[in-house]
Design a protein around this nucleic acid. Structure first.
Lengths: 198, 198
DNA sequence: CCTATAGATAAACGATCGTTCAAATATATG
DNA sequence: CATATATTTGAACGATCGTTTATCTATAGG
């Protein structure tokens, strides 16, 4: 019994996610959120707890949707190398046209919070570790398929994680497709067997 | 004529630089700055203008000192490849032990400001472009010295910029030396001529 | 239909933000 | 030494921050 909720919690969370994604946590005020979500402060606090709780919920949603959808491409292709190519192709597209125009919420938040919020820092480290694991799996498949140069080993997964983080940083200054594509292509070119140069 | 300034402007700026570096702009209050610089608000405003002006001055100082000192290593070695190795070695050291423990002020600030401050965004893009140019010069030298694999071209400079940005992100979560070293080694291994397989 | 109750609303909270200012202080110059 | 003035000082500014609360509204269950 009681009054029915006048807004969709998930829809409102998606809106909040977009605002945090574009502006960051500190640069986003409750006013900004209320305006974008079209919900009054009291209702937000009743539904989500605090600004930080709302942010954490947005982070989780990001990982479950945006991030997962991208990472799944790594091992959803016939060969390991093709998986990596599709992953980066999707990444570049999203950074040029799509929702990754403002970079990656995880990367942005890691830079903002790593030095002052151990709990969030743990989340981010875990996320990067998962990404590295996915890369390592793809590289292992590529290895058995003979797609890699001799020297490319498990450390290459670390390299790819760093490259993606770097592209996430670059994306924030809205570079042209060419620049992002060059980074991705160059990174993969350094992994492939010599005869298949570039 | 008039009272003598009671603090060293450059020393105070260095202190402010450290605080901004560690905490970011938004997360740093004037109280934080006053406490760290041991200067009262009025004196800060008299000497620097505004919080933002102080931040811009700190950014400039960072580029002129920290950043320049690191970049100069790229082309200060006998061969192009050695220059790159020394650059990354210095970077890793500084991230593990030294002043880069909290990443790179430019990278941190790019993530914080790129979406909302065109003037600062321009500064950051210029900085990354300069870094790319330095990398390109080193790669050109390495090419003439026969240190590179056939496929490694000018786009590799873009890759190295991305890798450094990625390492700057990683550094914020205080990784072990091993992880950073693996990224740097792996990046360079992808550029060298095949026989010298890492 | 009435009532109990969950939610919406808008005003207001104390805290802190970046910034300013009048008064006090110290120094270079005549 | 006296004076003009650059600097320091600490209180205080208005604005905005995240959050709470009292009041009103709407709905589900009896």
């Amino acid at each position: 019994m009681g009054r029915t909720r006048g807004f969709d919690v998930d829809e409102a969370l998606d809106v909040a996610l977009d605002v945090f994604w574009r502006q960051g946590f500190d640069a986003t005020s409750m006013q900004d959120l209320c305006q974008a979500m079209e919900v009054r402060p009291g209702s937000i606090y009743a539904a989500f707890g605090s600004k930080r709780d709302l942010f954490v919920a947005a982070l989780r949603r990001y990982v479950e949707t945006v991030s997962t959808e991208t990472v799944e491409r790594i091992n959803g292709a016939p060969t390991g190398l093709q998986g990596l190519r599709e992953y980066f192709a999707h990444l570049v597209d999203a950074m040029v046209d799509g929702r990754r125009r403002w970079g990656c919420l995880i990367t942005n938040s890691l830079v903002e919070f790593a030095g002052r919020d151990p709990q969030l820092a743990g989340m981010f480290e875990l996320h990067l570790a998962n990404l590295q694991t996915s890369f390592a799996a793809a590289l292992a498949r590529a290895r058995t398929d003979g797609e890699l140069r001799p020297g490319a080993g498990p450390d290459s997964a670390r390299l790819l994680v760093a490259v993606v983080q770097g592209m996430n940083v670059m994306a924030k200054s809205r570079p042209g497709r060419h620049a992002l594509q060059a980074v991705a292509d160059s990174a993969l070119a350094g992994l492939v067997a010599s005869p298949t140069a570039e």
